[in-house]
Amino acid sequence: MLERARAAATYLASYEPQAGVRSLADIVNPAVLAYVTELEELYNGGEPFRPVLRMPSGRPANR
């Protein structure tokens, strides 16, 4: 998937300036924001999740 996103960003930046994509970040950032917003709606009452400074390493413990 990352390869497809890189290819799209490279193509769009070079040949389709009206797309507004100049880098991989222009594709990734809006997609991540949309997904996090959806997760906040589903699991946190529409509120932002509590900020963390560093994610714990390893797999989460089974609940």
Rank of each mutant, 00 (worst) to 15 (best):
Y11L: 07
N62M: 04
L39N: 06
P48E: 06
P30E: 07
P60G: 05
Y15Q: 12
E3P: 03
V32N: 05
A8Q: 09
L24K: 11
M1A: 13
V21D: 01
A8R: 03
M55C: 02
R54P: 01
E47V: 07
E40H: 12
N62I: 09
A8D: 10
A13N: 13
V21S: 04
M55T: 05
F49E: 02
L33A: 13
V28T: 12
S23W: 11
A25G: 12
R54V: 07
P56I: 00
A5H: 05
S14T: 14
A31G: 06
E16W: 10
S23D: 14
A8F: 01
R54G: 02
R59F: 03
R4A: 14
E38H: 15
R50A: 14
P51A: 02
E47M: 15
I27S: 08
A9L: 09
Q18S: 15
G58K: 02
P51I: 01
V52S: 05
A13Y: 06
M1V: 11
S23I: 04
I27W: 09
R4Q: 13
A34I: 05
A34T: 14
E38K: 15
M55I: 04
P30V: 12
N29R: 02
P56S: 07
I27V: 15
L24S: 07
A61F: 07
S14H: 12
R50S: 14
E3V: 05
I27A: 08
A8Y: 01
E3D: 15
E47I: 09
M1S: 14
G20P: 01
E47N: 15
A31V: 13
R50W: 05
M1Q: 14
Y43T: 07
L2C: 02
V52M: 06
G45N: 15
P51M: 08
A7P: 06
L24N: 08
D26V: 04
L33I: 14
N44D: 09
E16Y: 06
S14G: 14
A13P: 05
P51D: 00
P51E: 04
A61L: 08
M55P: 01
A9I: 06
L2E: 13
T10I: 13
V36E: 08
L42V: 01
G20Y: 03
G46E: 05
V36D: 02
V52H: 01
N29Y: 03
L33C: 04
D26F: 04
L39V: 06
E16R: 12
V28P: 03
S14Q: 15
Y35E: 15
P51N: 00
P17M: 11
L2G: 11
V21G: 04
Y15P: 03
P60V: 06
E40I: 08
L42N: 11
E16F: 10
Y43N: 09
S14V: 00
A19H: 03
A31Q: 11
A7W: 02
T37P: 00
R59H: 06
D26S: 03
L24Y: 04
P56W: 00
A25N: 10
